[in-house]
Structure formats: C-alpha cells, structure tokens
Amino acid sequence: MTKRIDVLKTYKIFIDGKFPRTESGRYYTLSNNGKGIANICLSSRKDVRNAVVASRKAFGSWSGRSAYNRAQVLYRIAEMIEGRRDQFVAEIISMGGSKNAAENEVNNSIDRLIYYAGWCDKINQVFGAVNPVASSHFNFSLLEPMGVVGIIAPADYSLLGIVSAMLPALAAGNPVVVLASEQKPLCSVTLAEVLATSDVPSGVVNILTGNTSELIPHLSAHMDVNAIFYCKNNPKEINQIQLAAVDNLKRIVLSKNSDWNNSAHETPYYISDFMETKTTWHPIEQIAGSGSGY
C-alpha cells in the first residue's frame, strides 16, 4: 500500500478579509535548526498600500460599532483560538519552543483578548470626563478612535506578540495593518484564518509577512496611516519611523517592555494611545428653577 502523503499548508497574507499571495510573488524560507518549515510571503510596498486601503475602508464601520459589539467580537476571537489551541501550540513548537512555553503563550494570548475585550465599553468611563467649565455650558471630553494604525509586531513572539500588539488599537475602534514577526510568522497567518472565521469584519485586521525592515519605511511614510505601534527594539528602525512619520504627524507609540508574557502589557493606556480626545461644548439655558425645592 502506498504511504499517505500529507497535504502541506500554503502560508499567505491577509488583506481585506481575503488571503492573497504577495503581489510581488517573492518568498523566504522559514526554517528551524536548518530544516525548512514553510515558504512565507515576502510582502511588498504594494501589499502595504493595499492593506492600508482596506483598513481605511473598514474604519467607518468598525469605529462606528457600539463598544459592546466590539467587545463581543474580540471575545469571539478568544473563543476561536481556544478551539484551535493545538494547532497554535504545534506551530510555536515547530519554530523552536518548548511545549510548556508554547502552551503558556497560547493561554496568555487568549486571556489577553478577554482583557482587552473588557475595555471596549469601559475606556471612556475611566478616561472620559465632564468638565466643570465656568460658563453655562455642558462640556465633556471623550476618547475617539484615531484611524488606521500600523503595527510592527514583536519579533521574538509568535501568537502572543501579534495579539498583544494589535489588541489595544482594535479595542479603541481602529483598523490595523500588522507587519508580522519575520522570525516567527506562522501563528500570524493562522491567526488570520481565525479572524476570517470569527466576527471581525473584513479589512479591520490586515496581516503582512515578510522583511519588516523593508516594509517599515513604506508603512511609516504612508499618508493614510494615522499611527504606528512599534514593538521591537531596533534604534535604527525607530529613528526611521520617527522621521517618516513627520509628514502627516503620525502618532508613534513604542513598547518599552519586551517580555510580552508580562502583565505590564495589559493596560488601558495602550488603548488611549490610539484614541483622540474630543471635547464638545453645549449651552445650558439659564431660566428658572433656582428656587427648586426638596
């Protein structure tokens, strides 16, 4: 009898809810201890631009959803990852990790999703304010989603890195374009498959694999990107982003702690980093009622 041959998976990128190959047709081979694991798309400038277009298109509907609905959509991702737990664990191990560490990473990723899901409808209760201005006005400040956020995921983590990096911007109501870890991209692609089958609307999350140092200049110079979240530790890249971002005054957020298992990465301040404060003034009529009783 002939031995059954496994069907190998093609790892593709994720733009606008679809799984295209990179338009450039290029690839790099991911390997562990000299053994090839998979061929990964080497995304191009054009892929970045397509992803930004998809994100911008998704901005209105994602930012316009109720916070409660966004919370449930993020919670649903956690449910979906829980169902694919074995696949993620296997992928992390294949890229060079212990079983224990892999399981820990998947657990932390799921719990982090739950953590940020919970913030969607609370962020404005903690960060918003009614301002007691001296004139007769009702004056309040709310945080609103910022726009398209470009994310450079942590290099040394697979699932936990990308999940932690994209969640704050998503919880805030922004669509994202993520540059996945170049060394550990497998879980990013599988996460895309999770997102495609959960309730995340297409275009809200776009994930590109490839050479991050090649793509960073294009993402950080793109005039339709509102902010960059940089989760690596390369001073040269940081400098590059800071310079390129000036043209449209992109906000830049740098993550300072590189231990992504650390709960320091669970903070509402990451969410508020990707929101703008809007203050509204409304007059209050001053007629009557001053002697109002008990």
Binding site: Y68, A71, Y75, Y115, G118, W119, D121, K122, P268
Partner: peptide
C-alpha cells in the same frame, strides 16, 4: 458581559 470585564480592572 459588561461586569465580567470589570473583574480584573
């Protein structure tokens, strides 16, 4: 759903 999210915040 709402109060679940408050537990750790």
């Amino acid at each position: 759903f709402y109060y679940a999210g408050w537990a750790d915040k």
